[in-house]
C-alpha cells in the first residue's frame, strides 16, 4: 500500500442534497486517517430507488453512469452502507456481459466508510476525542449485504464514546426506500420501536451508517419526542476532531 491512500468519495445523493454535514464529516475522517480525498463531481445517485421499486431499466442507467464516473479510481468510499451494498449486490444483477465485468471490478474497490477505515486501512484511532454515550443501529444493507459488522462501533469507541447496546440493534428501522412512503402505516411503528429501544439505553445519541434511515428516524422523533438524537457516526466522530 502506498503511504497516502487516494480515495474517491461517493457522497450519495441523500447526503449531497439533504445531509451535507455527513459528507463533510466523512472527508474529515478520511483525511484524519491520512487519505487524500477526491470528489468526482460528475457523480449523482447509485440508482437504488429505482432498483428497489422494480424499475431495473432506470437503475441500470444510473449504474452505468456510476461506473463511468468511478471506474478510474483505486478506492471508492461512501458514508452509506446501503448505497455501497447497491453497487456490490445489484449492479451485478442489473448489467450483463462486459458491463457486468466492469461493475464487478468497481464493486471490488467500493467500501462503506467505517469498513474502509477499520477493515481496509486498519485505522481506528483518528485523533477524535468524544465524551458521549451512544447506541448504534445496525443499518440493514450494510449489515447483511456487505458485512460492515461492528466497524462503526470500533471507530466510536476509539474516539472515546461509550457504546450502550440497545435491544434489537439489528432489526430494521422501517425506512426501506419507497416502502417508507407506500407503507408508512408499518414504517412509522417500526421507527417507534427503534426509537423506544434507543431511548431505553438512555444514550445521548442514536448513531448509524445510513443517512436515509437517520432522517426517517429523526422525522418520526420530531413528531413523538421519543429517543436520542439520530446522527451519522461520522458526523459524531468529526465533532470530536480538533
Amino acid at each position: 500500500m502506498p503511504d497516502v491512500q487516494r480515495v474517491a468519495l461517493f457522497v450519495t445523493c441523500v447526503v449531497d442534497i439533504v445531509s451535507p454535514e455527513v459528507g463533510v464529516a466523512s472527508v474529515r475522517l478520511l483525511e484524519a486517517a491520512g487519505c487524500e480525498v477526491l470528489f468526482p463531481e460528475a457523480q449523482t445517485c447509485c440508482g437504488q430507488p429505482a432498483a428497489n421499486s422494480g424499475e431495473p431499466e432506470a437503475a441500470a442507467r444510473l449504474a452505468r453512469h456510476f461506473i463511468d464516473v468511478f471506474e478510474p479510481y483505486d478506492a471508492i468510499v461512501s458514508p452509506s452502507g446501503s448505497c455501497a451494498a447497491m453497487i456490490h449486490h445489484w449492479y451485478d444483477r442489473l448489467l450483463t456481459g462486459r458491463e457486468r465485468d466492469r461493475a464487478r471490478a468497481v464493486a471490488s474497490k467500493t467500501f462503506e466508510l467505517s469498513q474502509y477505515l477499520v477493515v481496509e486501512l486498519g485505522k481506528t484511532e483518528l485523533g477524535a476525542r468524544l465524551d458521549a454515550t451512544v447506541t448504534v443501529h445496525d443499518a440493514c444493507h450494510g449489515l447483511r449485504n456487505i458485512g460492515v459488522g461492528g466497524s462503526a462501533r470500533v471507530l466510536l469507541e476509539a474516539a472515546g464514546a461509550t457504546i450502550i447496546e440497545m435491544e434489537e440493534s439489528e432489526t430494521c428501522c422501517g425506512f426501506g426506500g419507497t416502502f417508507s412512503i407506500e407503507h408508512g402505516e408499518v414504517a412509522g411503528p417500526l421507527a417507534d420501536d427503534k426509537l423506544a429501544h434507543a431511548a431505553a439505553t438512555e444514550a445521548q445519541y442514536l448513531a448509524s451508517g445510513d443517512s436515509a434511515c437517520l432522517l426517517h428516524l429523526e422525522g418520526r422523533r420530531r413528531r413523538t419526542g421519543t429517543g436520542p438524537e439520530p446522527i451519522h457516526f461520522a458526523e459524531l466522530i468529526a465533532r470530536g476532531l480538533a
Binding site: V11, V15, D16, I17, V18, S19, P20, E21, G23, V24, F39, E41, S180, I181, E182, H183, G184, E185, A187, G188, A191, L215, H216, E218, G219, R220, R222, R223
Partner: peptide, 18 residues
C-alpha cells in the same frame, strides 16, 4: 404516505458539492 407519520427532511441550503 411519509408525512402522515413523520416530518419530511428538506434539501439543505447548501449542497455538499457546493
Amino acid at each position: 404516505g411519509w408525512t402522515a407519520t413523520r416530518d419530511l427532511p428538506l434539501p439543505d441550503r447548501r449542497s455538499f458539492r457546493a
